[in-house]
Design a protein around this nucleic acid. Structure first.
Length: 212
DNA sequence: AGTTGGATGGTCT
DNA sequence: GACCATCCAACTG
């Protein structure tokens, strides 16, 4: 395939799990609504929502059909197409009258759910897209064989204090502790070189790509 | 280095 | 009409 130079690839290093209607922090807490309908369908599809009137956030519908569980993608390390990401961030800033913001974008080019979507040009129009379709414009891919192995760690989710307990404190945020591109607290513990704690969960270190 | 408040609009009560 | 799964600039020290 010819690379037209606009292809963007990133390593997912931070995600959060949302558990459907019982989870008071989930958008599915109110049951099925027009906005959240896609969450109640089959897994592997994108659910993109607008938050604070300005920022789009990307979720992957997960779990069995009908459970309305989803995974919020919070941070990505750029692997390919950094310049396209910078351009997209600048474009976003310009559209929102934030002139100086994108001037010095560094490793945090796609750190935080809003920045990530801005960098990849993801908006609500991607809701319903099949992220597991190898031919999709926006898709998930397995980690490349030579990729640095992630060191998983779990923390509470960010920005969900309103949900009350136990939802606000559940350690449903999963990060690759070796990454410098995290949007929130890095859990204390042994340095990345030491033996990682064995815990269940999805491995981080998949790839997300988009071309526009 | 850490804290605070403004921008902003769709969604649900 | 209130509430946000955020980000950035402008303060404080």
């Amino acid at each position: 395939m010819g690379d037209d130079g606009r292809r963007r690839v990133g390593r997912i290093v931070e995600v959060e799990a949302y558990g459907g209607p019982p989870d008071r922090a989930s958008h599915a807490r109110a049951g099925r609504t027009p906005r959240t309908a896609v969450m109640f369908g089959p897994p592997g599809l994108a659910y993109v929502y607008l938050v604070y009137g300005m920022y789009d956030c990307l979720n992957v519908v997960s779990g069995p059909n009908g459970t309305a569980s989803a995974v919020l993608v919070r941070a990505v390390e750029p692997l390919e197409g950094v310049e396209a990401m910078v351009a997209a961030r600048r474009s976003f800033a310009a559209r929102h009258s934030r002139s100086t913001a994108a001037a010095r974008i560094g490793h945090d080019i796609a750190v935080g759910p809003g920045r990530l979507c801005a960098a990849f040009g993801i908006d609500r129009g991607f809701t319903g897209a099949d992220l597991c379709d190898p031919g999709g414009i926006l898709r998930l891919e397995p980690a490349a064989p030579g990729d640095r192995p992630p060191v998983p760690a779990w923390t509470p989710r960010i920005g969900v204090a309103y949900a009350g307990e136990p939802w606000a404190s559940l350690a449903w945020r999963l990060v690759d502790r070796t990454s410098r591109a995290l949007s929130g607290p890095v859990p204390a513990g042994a340095p990345p070189d030491a033996d990682p704690e064995p815990e269940p969960g999805d491995p981080a270190g998949r790839r997300s790509g988009s071309q526009g």
